[in-house]
Simulated assay, not measured.
Amino acid sequence: MKTLYTAKATATGGRKGHVKTEDGPIDMPLSMPKGLGGDGGEGVNPEQLFGSAYSACFGSALSLVAEKHKVDLGDFSVTAHISINKEDEGGLLLSAVLDSYLPGVDDIKTAETLVNEAHEVCPFSRATRDNMDVTLNVLRDE
């Protein structure tokens, strides 16, 4: 395997600390969400960071797949909903819902094919496969 890129980020103080990337674009406080017993402060939380990264990566995978199929996605977007869930046994698990809005794709079967193929090639989807529940949705204009 050939490494193409490595990001380096360091968090200090856990969910109530600070996170910074080695090259500087991310340099921000972390806050515990109220839903997890925190104060819901001004900082970001790991789920927000993961959702931002997953939605961006999945969007790139959608672009790649659409280009392969010669389909114009239009002004598309991907919204990731990242949840922390508590198992009956008390353990915590992540789940994700990815809402893909593809205004340039009129045919629902084509849209679903693109989203499913993007899920196969997206590195975040591959990393989470069989490790967490991921629900894929195609959003349509009403």
Rank of each mutant, 00 (worst) to 15 (best):
F76Q: 03
T3R: 11
E67W: 03
T135P: 11
L30K: 04
I84D: 03
L92N: 07
V97C: 10
A56C: 12
F58H: 08
N131R: 09
N137L: 11
A118L: 08
G104N: 02
D72L: 07
V115P: 00
R15V: 00
E87C: 08
L102W: 11
Y5C: 12
L49Q: 14
F124T: 06
N131D: 10
G104V: 06
G40D: 03
V19S: 10
V44M: 13
G41L: 08
E87F: 02
D72W: 07
L92Y: 10
Y54T: 06
G17M: 05
P25A: 12
L92T: 04
K8Y: 03
L98S: 00
N45D: 13
S83Q: 11
D72T: 14
K2T: 13
A118I: 05
T79V: 13
A80E: 00
S52D: 02
N116T: 13
A111R: 07
L36G: 00
T135C: 05
E47P: 10
A66L: 07
D23C: 06
D27T: 09
R15E: 01
S125C: 11
Y101S: 02
F50Q: 01
M32C: 10
L30G: 02
C57T: 03
A61L: 02
S95H: 06
K109T: 12
G90Q: 06
S60D: 04
K2R: 13
D27S: 11
A53N: 07
L36V: 03
V105W: 08
G13Y: 01
F76Y: 15
M132E: 06
V115Y: 08
V19I: 15
E112V: 03
E89C: 04
P103K: 13
D27C: 05
T12Q: 05
Y5L: 14
A127S: 14
S77Y: 08
K2Y: 10
E117H: 10
L64C: 05
